[in-house]
């Protein structure tokens, strides 16, 4: 009885180890930004179709996790929806797409543009009512992103703000939550991915995009590099990535995935 059991366990262990060895050279693990993950997942599926022996596992966890996992070797490739910080050394950056970030308000809001100073004053709580910027008598609901989101860092950087200066009424997580929050609140102002906002607006979601520095918040303007508030979506590797990682990154930067980038409402970098 015990011999049979031991035999069975040994067989299982052998299978597992054989599986591990076989998996090592045709398997890629990617971790990181939840914004980049759905896009890379689709790219990985197309790559797997063309190379049936390859398996690419895409996991999420946020840009910082992507950076850390790549540095410690837990992931072959990291995903980050921002530029690297000065302290994040030892990595190579491969940009696969651009994402514009635009200011949105409720569709019923008569305001058609805000200056940078006005936006700063609204986010720091100096202006608390829409009538102070030429709108209706309605108090402003400031929607801010939670700590750790790269859109927050991008927004603060651009307006030269510190998160401690911002007086938010609501703190949200992912993009889609931001769109839903503003759509459900006539006095709200927020900032979200332009592609996602444009798509939601076309489907009748009650939001409106405001121009920034006179440039319309549209995918076309991001594409033309005219829109001032944009971020790169990056793949990260160590200094010498494996041959498979190199091939996948080349694929992710090629024309073959341009339609996938557009499907996820991002812009192909030029």
């Amino acid at each position: 009885m015990f011999q049979r059991l031991t035999g069975l366990l040994l067989a299982v262990a052998l299978c597992l180890s054989a599986y591990g060895v076989q998996a090592a050279d045709n398997r890629l693990i990617l971790t990181g930004s939840s914004t980049v993950a759905p896009l890379v997942l689709e790219m990985a599926k197309r790559y797997e179709q063309q190379h049936p022996q390859v398996r690419i596992d895409v996991q999420t966890g946020g840009s910082t996790r992507g950076v850390n996992d790549t540095r410690t070797g837990l992931a072959h490739i990291g995903m980050a929806s921002r530029n690297l910080k000065p302290t994040e050394t030892g990595l190579r950056v491969h940009t696969i797409a651009i994402d514009g970030v635009g200011i949105i308000v409720h569709r019923s809001n008569p305001i058609s543009s805000l200056s940078n100073t006005q936006i700063i004053d609204i986010y720091t709580g100096k202006i608390r009512n829409w009538k102070d910027v030429g709108g209706r008598d309605l108090s402003i609901t400031v929607v801010n992103k939670a700590e750790g989101h790269s859109t927050l860092e991008l927004f603060l950087n651009y307006f030269a703000l510190k998160n401690s200066q911002v007086r938010p009424s609501i703190i949200i997580g992912d993009n889609e939550q931001g769109i839903k929050t503003v759509a459900g609140n006539p006095g709200a102002i927020g900032y979200v991915s332009i592609g996602a906002a444009e798509f939601s607006q076309a489907r009748g979601v009650t939001i409106k995009r405001l121009p920034l520095e006179g440039v319309a918040a549209s995918v076309a303007e991001v594409q033309a590099h005219r829109f001032p508030l944009a971020r790169p979506l990056n793949l990260l590797t160590g200094k010498s990535p494996s041959p498979l990682a190199r091939r996948f990154i080349a694929f992710a930067q090629s024309e073959a995935v341009a339609d996938l980038i557009a499907d996820q409402f991002f812009v192909v970098p030029r």
């Binding site: 939840s34 914004t35 993950a37 759905p38 999420t60 997580g173 992912d174 993009n175 889609e176 939550q177 769109i179 991915s193 592609g195 996602a196 798509f199 939601s200 489907r203 409402f265």
Partner: peptide, 10 residues
């Protein structure tokens, strides 16, 4: 969770 909070149009 991913479709409702992370994927626009999901």
């Amino acid at each position: 969770f991913d479709l409702s909070m992370n994927v626009t149009g999901g």
